[in-house]
Amino acid sequence: MKASDIEEGRVATAQGRPEAKYAWSAGESIGRFLAELKEGRLVGRKCDKCGRILFPPRSFCEECFVRAGDFVTLKDSGTVETYSISYIDTDARRLEEPIYVGVISIDGASEKMGFMHYLGEVKADELSIGLKVKAVWKSKADREGAITDIRYFKPTGR
């Protein structure tokens, strides 16, 4: 069967769209994380048992299975652990300008504790695993307590 068989009505079909909308509660730890983003800060959370600084912050240490301790303010810089250059968008449509995206481990958190974000102000051939980067923030007025309050990470020294 071809796509045109559906488009031109040669086979019987029914169509529909889920009309549900969602509102996810951010929870204790990510709620605080988002609030701190609005202030231009990154926070992690310490596990008092293993001593790891967990990032992104969470309300429990998944290894020790104990309640996490205090929030810790981290730097807004880190290291590119891995990256990709994407020529497709979220619906697999071709992009004119590629998106640079990576996993960035954050300075002050425990080793390998990172999150996914965009990379910017960098050329493809300058990107490498191990590259030191820092956050480029939206202006204070534009920040809303969202992961996108950081526009992207750029190489340090620029």
Binding site: E81, S86, V101, M116, Y118, A146, I147
Partner: peptide, 26 residues
């Protein structure tokens, strides 16, 4: 798109291939 974390990752409009591309690169 609805596999990703709705708060930390989906707002970045990811494509699932990204995660594999980054694993492959590593």
């Amino acid at each position: 798109g609805h596999i990703w974390d709705p708060i930390l990752e989906r707002p970045l409009k990811p494509n699932l291939i990204w995660i594999f591309a980054m694993e492959m690169n590593r």
